[in-house]
């Protein structure tokens, strides 16, 4: 009688510990997934900030750069394409085109000392540089989070819980890495 009661107690305690472990792993997975979602939304915030910045930048620079209509047209076009993109793949492509157009613009600016002396433009240039960096760092942070999350969904024992509750592997943000590394060509 006593022995059975002790055995039952041990089983019960074991069961409770097991359940607690499952709850712990589940919560960790949810937390990681939310962090990845949050990192993803950060990218969107920064992209939106870049869209808002461009008209201002073009307006300030236009007066100084009379012979660079083509550059401005490319930027404006890439911006409207990026803003009108319907799905993620299109958006990624358009945003990369915009990044390319902007970095080309920054190189062209070097030929206009008057513009570079304009305080207003210098402030805009710093904001643009920072926004570009923020986009890159937001992607980096998203990839870091996805790596953490994916590791958790694939490693034992959390992979069992992940399979049971449908925590799927996520893709990291790799699109356009190649396009970014390509240095923009400038014709003089």
């Amino acid at each position: 009688m006593g022995a059975i009661a002790v055995l039952l107690l041990i089983v019960l305690i074991g069961l409770i510990l097991f359940l607690l472990a499952i709850i712990g792993i589940y919560n960790a997975l949810v937390q990681l997934r939310n962090q990845a979602d949050n990192a993803w939304s950060q990218i969107d915030v920064q992209l939106k900030r870049r869209h808002d910045l461009i008209p201002n930048l073009v307006e300030t620079a236009k007066g100084y750069m009379k012979h660079e209509r083509e550059t401005f047209e490319k930027i404006t076009e890439a911006r409207s394409q990026a803003m009108g993109a319907k799905n993620v793949a299109d958006a990624a492509k358009a945003e990369n085109a915009l990044t390319g157009a902007l970095s080309k613009f920054m190189l062209v600016v070097e030929n206009y000392p008057d513009l570079k002396a304009n305080q207003n433009f210098l402030a805009l240039q710093e904001t643009l540089t920072s926004t570009e960096n923020k986009i890159a760092f937001a992607r980096q942070a998203y990839n870091d989070q996805v790596l953490l999350y994916n590791n958790k969904t694939q490693m034992f024992p959390s992979n069992i819980i992940a399979g049971m509750f449908g925590f799927r592997k996520r893709d990291s943000f790799e699109i356009g890495e190649a396009a970014q590394r390509e240095t923009p060509k400038v014709s003089f």
Partner: peptide, 16 residues
């Protein structure tokens, strides 16, 4: 110092 604020925000984003 706008640049300092920008850089701190960049690192805040990178570190999450």
């Amino acid at each position: 110092h706008p640049q300092l604020f920008n850089i701190v925000e960049e690192m805040k984003i990178a570190a999450g």
